[in-house]
Amino acid sequence: MHNDYRITWKHLLTLLLAVGGSTLLITRAPAHDQANFPMPGGKTYVDECGSCHTAYAPGMLPARSWRKLMAELADHFGEDASLADPRRMEITQALELLASDGSQATVRMRRINAAIPANAAPQRISETGYFKFIHDEVRPSIWKRKQIGTLANCIACHPRANDGRYGEREIRIPQN
């Protein structure tokens, strides 16, 4: 009778394969599950756009939004952020290529894009449907903390936002 419960090499091998297989699946989960966005290569984008605010991931707005924004830099939310060519052109092209309606958009970027009306060219990511939906658990009192301050300050809670990384595990909410 007790022979039925004996651990054999076959059992051990099955266990090993199951654990190993699951581990592989977990560690190799696709990038979009970690909320990674493709970012423009090189330093130009983060240097030029990331000094005053987070270097936002292009995939959070459609190409038409970026085109409008990059054409109106002399009055950029009330400030003069004008940028000379060829840098302005270089950044515009990178933004359009990686925009939410780009041909290589990830699953998450497609969802962001689907929540933006086709006739709208939103200029604030925080006014898009997906932003509101994904942040609905964040209490108003948290947004008011001094180190966060505005909805535009992604990098306050997503320390690797300038690398396009917004994964839940990397969120660090400032305590004051």
């Binding site: 005053c52 605010h53 987070t54 939310f77 009330g78 400030e79 001094k146 180190q147 966060i148 301050g149 505005t150 535009a152 300050n153 990098i155 306050a156």
Partner: peptide
């Protein structure tokens, strides 16, 4: 420091 408009550090 902290940007007065965007709050970025």
């Amino acid at each position: 420091g902290q940007h007065v408009r965007t709050s970025k550090a």
